[in-house]
């Protein structure tokens, strides 16, 4: 297991190096001169030249690339072209807010999803299954931005129950709508996967044996089924959480949430190279790390996976 983990960690480096390099050169392929975006509506050649020099854009691309790698080696992500602020400062300020939103959305998704999945699969409430699964189907299919708008319309404009946007200094009231919006699709997927996991596991021999032995339903659910149904849930949690952490652009824009997603989109639109490079790298690191944790955690939940990885 330790060897496998180590190997996976080593494999992260070529991936990240690839991401850095692709991002860097992609920036230079995109038309749209960042100096031009900073020059305003009324400028002359001299102004452009001064700005280019100030930003270091007057050097050959390959020199810029190696300088950038040099700075990265010192953990320096540079300063934003547009705001002049250190990229690491911005990420440090925004990432916690992204984490808060991602964590609460994931928490909602897992509790709601697993609960709905179990209720849907459990024989005790047969009438619950269909509506729950119908709801979860809508949940997977509804576009995030549309859902967000409808929630704002209902809960903020019509009912005046919750604030429509903002971070509100961390107040929970501000978190509810964006977290629910973001969690919806994951919750629905988790509900579906949990349900089918339970239904399948219910047919497996060891559960039938347990049932035949006269074990109570709740004991069966708790002891035998849970573990089996958990693995696909972990997969979904992993991938979704990874992408939540790299910022949920749509949710953030609709609810004015000051997270990472909007930061990078703004940067792309403004050709803010240091910000794009810095945040893409940061997101990639988060994404691969979360995936790594998920992959490793399989081994703890299900010994069979551990065996499979050996071949």
């Amino acid at each position: 297991m330790a060897g496998y983990t180590l190997k996976r960690i080593l494999l992260l480096f070529p991936t990240l190096f690839g991401v850095v390099t692709v991002t860097f050169f992609l920036m230079y392929v995109i038309p749209g001169d960042p100096a031009l975006a900073l020059a305003g509506e009324r400028y002359d050649q001299q102004t452009l030249d001064n700005i280019r020099k100030e930003l270091g854009l007057d050097q050959p691309v390959i020199v810029q690339y190696f300088k950038y790698l040099g700075r990265l080696a010192r953990f320096d992500l540079g300063r934003s072209f547009t705001t002049g602020r250190a990229v690491s400062d911005s990420i440090r300020e925004r990432f916690p807010k992204t984490v808060i939103l991602a964590l609460s959305a994931m928490l909602l998704a897992v509790t709601g999803g697993v609960l709905a999945g179990i209720l849907g699969a459990w024989g005790r409430f047969p009438w619950l299954g269909r509506p729950l699964m119908g709801l979860s189907l809508v949940g997977v299919s509804i576009p995030v931005f549309w859902l967000g708008l409808i929630l704002i319309y209902i809960f903020s404009i019509k009912l005046s129950l919750l604030p429509p946007s903002g971070y509100g200094g961390g107040s929970v009231r501000y978190l509810i709508l964006p977290a629910v919006t973001l969690s919806f699709a994951s919750m629905a997927t988790i509900a579906r996967v949990t349900r089918s996991g339970f239904l399948e596991a219910g047919n497996e021999d060891f559960v039938r044996t347990a049932r035949a032995k006269g074990l109570g339903e709740s004991a069966i659910v708790g002891k035998h089924l849970f573990r089996n149904a958990l693995i696909p849930v972990v997969t979904i949690v992993g991938t979704d959480f990874g992408s939540y952490l790299s910022g949920a652009v749509l949710t953030e824009s609709i609810f004015g949430w000051p997270g990472l997603g909007r930061y990078v989109v703004q940067a792309v639109l403004k050709r803010d190279f240091p910000v794009i490079q810095g945040s893409v790298l940061f997101m990639a690191v988060i994404f691969v790390l979360v995936n790594l944790v998920v992959d490793i955690s399989y081994g703890f939940i299900d010994p069979r996976v551990r065996l499979k990885e050996k071949d």
Binding site: S160, P164, G166, G256, P258
Partner: peptide
């Protein structure tokens, strides 16, 4: 001064 990109959201904020 709050930053609110969506105009619908700004309206909702004013209304509340």
């Amino acid at each position: 001064i709050r930053i609110i990109p969506e105009s619908m959201t700004r309206i909702a904020e004013f209304e509340t």
